[in-house]
Every structure is written in C-alpha cells, then in structure tokens.
Amino acid sequence: MSSIAGSSRIAFRKPSALPGFLPTFAFTIFYLSTVVLIPLAALVIRPWSLGFDGFIAAVTTPRVLAALELSFGAAATAAIINTVFGFIVAWVLVRYRFPFKRLIDALVDLPFALPTAVAGIALATLYSQKGWIGGALAPWDIKIAYTPLGVIVALTFIGLPFVVRTLQPVLADMGPQAEEAAATLGATRLQTFVRVVLPALTPALLTGAAMAFARAVGEYGSVIFIAGNLPMVSEIAPLLIVIKLEQFDYAGAAAVGLTMLAASFLILLALNALQGYLSTRR
C-alpha cells in the first residue's frame, strides 16, 4: 500500500509499515512554520534593521541594562530559593506521611494552572502595605510590593512547581538500597545524606532550577502588578518590550527581546552541559 511510497525516502527516514507519515509530518511542519518559525524569524531579523551598532546601542542603554539585570538577577535568586525549599517540599512529599499531604501535593501545581494575571493581582494585594503579609511586615519597615523584593516573591511563586515536580519522580525512583548500604558501612544519617543522597539528586535539582529560572526570566503577568515598574529600579525587561511597542519602536523592542532570548539560551546551554557532565558517569 502506501508503504511502498516510503522507500523513495530511505535516506531521510526508515521505511515503516505504518501509514500516514507524509500527511502528519507535512501538517506538523506547516503548523510549526506558520505559528512558530516564521514569526520567530521576524524577531531574529528585525533588530538588525538598526544596523549592528544601532542594535548594540539599543540594548546597552542604562535603562535596558537595568531591566535585564533585574529580570535575570531576580530570576536567579528566585530559582535558588525554589531549589532549597522545593527540595524540602519534594523530600517530605516523597518520604514522609503526614496529615494534609494530598492537599499540599495538589497545591504544588497551582502556579502551573493559575493564570498569571490572577496571581499577579493576588500577590500585589497580599504584599502591599495593607495586605495580609505586607501589613504584618509594615511595622518593621519592610516593603515588598513595588520593590525588587516583590519581583523575587512573584518569581518564586511561579517557579516552585518546576523544582518539586522534577525532583519528585527521581526521589521516588531512588529506592532505599544505596542509603541502606551506607548505613551498614557505618555512615550516620547526615553523612549518608551529604555523600550519597545529595550527589545522586544534583542533576535533577539542576534541571528543575534551570527550568524555574527560564520561566522566571520572561515572566510578565505575575510580576507587573507587584513590581512597581519604576525605570532603572523595578522595571522588568518584558515590560520594557511592551513600552517600546507602544512607542512603535518595533526594532528596539525586538532588540531587547532577542537579547533576552540569546542570554537565556546561553545560560541554559551552560546548565545543560554541566548536567550532562555530571550524568556521564552514572
């Protein structure tokens, strides 16, 4: 039947008895191209309409640099916070039994499912001077909303599930044997944890942290309500892109966008390489 048609494409794909490759593959490529690739091409090409120097000038203004610093810095901080607490959450969910465990497990997915704007206004209200948490901290003169601290809080909110959900299956699969072996060899619980458990989990931790970081860098809806959005102080890079678009500075907006993409890509590449290095010996 149609399997004979496959033989003319042997160099590209192995022949298969199953039908339907051409239509599905063609549709997939078509969809991907129109929806993703061509528009992305626009992003890659547009900044260069400013010329190379123009591009560099557009992304190195103090305002742009401050915004990039805030977006990447806050994302990194949030990723670190989430790595620590996400680890604890994953640990207790996998290894211990306690009341309301099901509830906590379900709640971990909330940032995945909750629309970012909803999270945004909720966090802004919660941490404002009159909010439940913001109000409680006011007497100590600690301001969270409308400061970079607020940005970190919002990015922590959205990044948590990445760490926990990446770690949970790995922890669950680990099994007690390595730890039992360590116990019979005389190690205390702490030694076992530091020398045996943690190193085994490091690749998963890195992956989770990287994913949380990547998501946080580009986050918009959860952050703009709580951020304050003062240029040079609490303005995140995505907001800068929106502002430039509103000013019809398409090339400038594209330049900032492309820079963000390139930087994230490089960081993720580095993290991936690190993780690959750690995994080759396992």
């Binding site: 528009p39 992305l40 626009a42 992003l43 580009g218 995505p238 892109i241 929106v242 907006a253």
Partner: peptide, 11 residues
C-alpha cells in the same frame, strides 16, 4: 517569554 510570544506576531 509570553511577551516575546506576542511581540513576534506584532513584528
């Protein structure tokens, strides 16, 4: 970033 997702269509 979601903003970039919108940006590309504007471009």
């Amino acid at each position: 970033s979601p903003v970039i997702s919108g940006l590309i269509y504007v471009l």
